[in-house]
């Protein structure tokens, strides 16, 4: 028999937040820091996402890109591609928006303690990885190593470029950045993430690697092959997937990927769990 409690929380009802600050990251890409109007800040795990609602426009899923150790600073990075994301990139300090979440699975940063964490990011895929990067950097002594391989379209489109420099300046990280093309002012690498990853892996004991990947699906597909070729155990690779999401709570059915709801069972999946379907077309 169904038991109905009074005042059951409705997971479809947004909570109101206010924009504390907003800053441009790249052309068409903006970060916002939010603070709750209704109630206290909500803890989140690295890799989780929120449904952000712009009044009168609509709601979309955006991963949380701030530090999980500072949940009171709720940060999202959004690229303007549709009506809602365009509205989110135009927010100003003091504006209000609705938030539902956090939703979904997380990068297993705690379970992979003691491992060499290899982050592989492509384009805006760095945003959902950043909370996990923060966690590993803050607890660096708990991990055998930390490598970030990051690919972007061009030097102008490197997300969090200044922050990457500070990560690189630490002596306990390996940071490899590559772009698809550049002008001669660029002194870094030009080439795809996979080539860069092959090099980064060459100096690491593959058995010790736990890899977290986020970026275009095609980039993750080829990167997983590089990881496998290098001998990284298949059960130590996680990817973050993107599908159409309307409800984020497993009700609307849009984000199904085989037996999984990307919103509930993902977005972070252990790769070997989804691998058979990833190679099928139009799943």
């Amino acid at each position: 028999m169904l038991v109905v409690q009074d005042q059951e929380p409705d997971p479809m009802l947004p909570r109101r937040y206010r924009v504390r600050s907003t800053w441009a990251e790249l052309a068409g890409v903006t970060s916002v820091e939010l603070t709750p109007v209704d109630g206290a800040a909500v803890a989140f795990r690295p890799g989780q996402f929120n449904m952000l609602y712009a009044f009168g426009v609509g709601e979309i899923a955006i991963s949380i890109s701030g530090d999980p150790a500072e949940p009171q600073r709720l940060i999202h990075t959004t690229r303007s591609v549709g009506a809602v994301s365009a509205a989110l990139t135009k927010l100003c300090e003091g504006d209000m928006l609705g938030v539902r979440g956090p939703f979904g699975s997380a990068w297993p940063v705690a379970a992979e303690t003691g491992r060499h964490i290899v982050f592989v990011a492509g384009g805006l895929g760095l945003a959902p990885l950043r909370p996990a990067i923060y966690h590993v950097l803050e607890h660096r002594e708990r991990y055998a190593g930390m490598t970030l391989v990051y690919g972007a379209r061009s030097p102008d489109e490197l997300l969090y470029a200044e922050e990457i420099k500070t990560w690189k300046s630490r002596f306990d990280t390996e940071i490899e950045v590559t772009v698809d093309h550049a002008n001669p002012a660029w002194t870094g690498r030009v080439g795809v993430v996979t080539s860069c990853l092959d090099r980064a892996l060459a100096g690491i004991d593959p058995a010790m690697v736990s890899a977290f990947l986020c970026g275009p699906e095609i980039m993750m597909r080829f990167s997983v092959m590089s990881l496998a070729d290098a001998g990284v155990p298949p059960d130590r690779v996680w990817i973050s997937m993107e599908r159409n999401m309307k409800c984020a709570i497993g009700f609307c059915g849009h984000c199904q990927f085989g037996p999984d709801f990307v919103c509930r069972d993902g977005p972070v999946f252990r790769h070997d769990h989804v691998a058979p379907l990833l190679s099928m077309k139009e799943i």
Partner: peptide, 11 residues
């Protein structure tokens, strides 16, 4: 009512 979330209206 999928274990994580329930639709209060439906219930």
């Amino acid at each position: 009512d999928n274990g994580d979330f329930a639709d209060p209206g439906y219930r």
